[in-house]
Write a protein that binds this DNA or RNA. Structure first.
Lengths: 245, 245
DNA sequence: GTTTACTTTTAATCTCGGTTAGTTTATTCT
DNA sequence: AGAATAAACTAACCGAGATTAAAAGTAAAC
């Protein structure tokens, strides 16, 4: 298999887990010309306000999308893991309303936006796949707004940890109980709209309640039902059922 | 013109303001069978968790999408005005992760999800239009998360008012200076993650600073630059440039 | 194996916004 | 017009989470 195909495969597999593609459509995607790029920790992939001409598919590592205010406050909008097409946005929107940066050493494949649009033009099944992906993204953003707008500190942190666990589970990096938390508490704080100090206090509270245990970067969910209850976590918003069609 | 076409036209016009459609594609959309429905104030159009089979296009009035917690706290995720396809989500996602309800007397047109999917299948330009619409939606959600997660109370309220003004402007219900605020302060509160009391305090602060004036439901922006500055409002996230293609 | 740098944790103080419970002002209805 | 209802506004008190700063733990680097 070519370098192309092997790095694009995780995304195709994610798409096909929801709904199989025709051989032709699959082949067309895997044949796209791509550039594989490597990044260190906390490196910028895209800055807010730029006009990217390439999308970005994560092969390895963890990145986030964020928006920031002039006073330095930053909101992380999403975390992305291997197999995620981070910047499908770029394909159709001209200017980036979020920045993208890495949280771990990362390998990413860059795909030309025009190629993505051509694919969507030629294959309705790809158009639908991209659209669905964007809808799920949007759904997750809605849940995050709810998280940040209405939940208490402990609830927010619990919810974020459960989401991370669920998403890592879908790529085999969590068994639903235990996973390596790929970001620092300061980054979690930026994702849930809390200070790093209070995020730490909230994690401790979850630990003391017995719902959670940590060993360094490793998180162990000791009592999933309890954790899901405080977080009011319901994975419906991740739309695991896949698209209607 | 048939009843169908006249109620569907505002959406077509919105789409074509960004990028003209082929005659064939336009005609195909305007020929879709629809049901026109009327709702009173604070009436539910869709409940969280339901499996809708029809999308919803607002002809007249204002509605919101929201998510709620068991303890009764509610987060409004978006407001929608005439010409907005509120529930494009429904076309491709099977289960509704948000509810939809009215804030004013509302007329809406319901379109079968399958018809939307057929249209996207047959006309790549429609697929792209729907995808773009969803991307803009997602961008607005990201901005709202930033709003609720990182801005202070006054900043949040100012930002929301400016967004409402900008969106009403695009449908001719605001001249960029003056508009009728289509929702109560309690609803604004649910949109910005504040209590109604503090939302009121924040509006007063904006009034006292001279940025804003109100006469009953009418809002007059007295000092747009000042207001935009406190809100750090930058309409890039509304993607007024339209799609790349 | 010590230095260096980052991350987590602790503690003390303070503030922004929540809560409760009102009153006043607008609308709507009869 | 007057009653009823909903929305806007006020005031007093309170508490969740912010802020600042320093300490302790961890991990990589030399």
């Amino acid at each position: 298999m070519s370098v192309n195909a092997s790095s694009l495969l995780p995304y195709v597999e994610k798409i096909e887990r929801r709904r199989p593609l025709s051989d032709e459509a699959r082949a067309a995607f895997l044949a796209l010309p791509v550039q594989l790029e490597s990044y260190g920790t906390y490196q910028s992939i895209l800055n807010e306000g730029e006009r990217p001409d390439r999308c970005c598919l994560i092969v390895e590592g963890v990145v986030s999308r964020y928006k920031s205010l002039k006073n330095g406050r930053r909101q992380i909008n999403s975390f992305h893991y291997a197999g995620d097409m981070v910047d499908l946005q770029a394909a159709i929107l001209t200017v980036a309303d979020t920045g993208i940066r890495t949280h771990t050493p990362t390998k990413a494949v860059r795909i030309d936006c025009e190629d993505i649009l051509d694919l969507a033009e030629k294959y309705p099944e790809w158009a639908r796949a991209f659209w669905f992906d964007t809808q799920v993204d949007a759904s997750i953003f809605r849940e995050w707004t709810l998280n940040v707008g209405q939940r208490t500190a402990v609830e927010r942190v619990a919810h974020l940890l459960l989401e991370i666990s669920a998403r890592l589970e879908s790529i085999g990096q969590s068994d639903g109980k235990e996973f390596v938390l790929p970001v620092t508490q300061a980054d979690l704080a930026d994702a849930v709209g809390l200070s790093a100090v209070h995020t730490n206090r909230s994690i401790q509270q979850l630990r003391h309640s017995g719902a959670l245990r940590t060993h360094g970067r490793k998180v162990v969910i000791e009592n999933y039902p309890a954790l899901a209850k405080v977080a009011s976590f319901d994975r419906t918003y991740l739309h695991p059922e896949g698209p209607r069609r």
